[in-house]
């Protein structure tokens, strides 16, 4: 544990270099979000303020603010490219002989990167939170907070393992960006970044509820906003946990096979 804490610390120090990059990313990331809010505003105006399945404009504002915060906490930014780069450029050899597990090493760096990014992104986000402060509402129940926190951790692990497994493809292919972007496009639309997933037609939702994307971002936010409760919540957490296990298993399997191939090529 001690050595991974040391890596975590090192990661924090290294990412300080990127603080301006992070700030720019966070600020420019607000632009499409605000644009989307204007669109929702126009939609609710067109409906004469009538809400949509329990969503009013203020709820929508809250939803997108929470999605933004959750995203900065749990979504990997450059991790898959760095891992793929390590594999492609042969840097992996120097990690294989060191006394730590490469996956845990990357996980520590992922954790420190997300922490630093959130610390920077909180500045422009705070401005938005202040502007929309009248729309903010947080759950009263302590249990909801705990469930949200737990679900966020699972979401972070799920996203990390998916990214890690994708990066493993670099053992076999030089160019992984097409495959990564295909998965991204599903994540973008099906993890709730551009609209709350309960606005999808019911027959689509029956499918998306079983897909991992829902649990990468939407689910913890839905818990926090108390849109999912009781048996549905319990069921969602179980599905989320299952996907974490599946993604972890997939990442491990690909790693084991990839390393065997990597050594075969090198030796």
């Amino acid at each position: 544990m001690g050595k991974y804490l040391a890596i975590f610390n090192l990661g924090l120090q290294n990412t300080v270099v990127y603080r301006w990059n992070f700030l720019f990313r966070a600020v420019s990331g607000l632009i499409p979000m605000i644009g989307g809010l204007y669109l929702w505003g126009a939609l609710f105006h067109a409906r004469g303020g009538v809400d949509i399945e329990g969503w009013d404009f203020s709820g929508m504002v809250r939803y997108f603010l929470y999605v933004m915060l959750a995203e900065s906490l749990v979504t990997p930014v450059e991790d898959e490219w760095q891992i793929a780069g390590d594999i492609r450029d042969g840097r992996l050899s120097s990690f294989l002989i060191r006394p730590f597990d490469y996956m845990l090493y990357r996980l520590s760096l992922f954790g420190s990167g997300r922490l630093m990014y959130t610390a920077v992104a909180i500045l422009p986000s705070a401005l938005l939170l202040w502007i929309y402060r009248a729309d903010l509402r947080v759950p009263h129940d302590a249990i909801t907070w705990w469930l949200t926190a737990g679900s966020l951790v699972l979401a972070a692990l799920l996203q990390f393992f998916v990214s890690y497994a994708l990066a493993m493809i670099a053992f076999w292919l030089l160019e992984i960006s097409t495959i990564v972007f295909i998965v991204y496009s599903f994540e973008y639309f099906l993890s709730g970044r551009i609209f709350p997933l309960d606005l999808l037609p019911p027959y689509v939702r029956q499918v998306t509820e079983w897909l991992p994307f829902t649990y990468e971002l939407y689910f913890p936010v839905a818990i926090f906003m108390e849109r999912v409760q009781g048996p549905a919540l319990a069921r969602g957490l179980v599905i989320q946990l299952l996907w974490v296990v599946v993604a972890f298993g997939g990442a491990r399997l690909l790693w084991a096979r990839g390393v065997r191939r990597y050594q075969a090529v090198g030796g």
Binding site: L39, A42, L43, A46, R47, I52, F195, L199, L200, P201
Partner: peptide
Amino acid sequence: DVMFRQTDRIL
């Protein structure tokens, strides 16, 4: 499509 399930027109 999701948006226009809720309204006929935006502006």
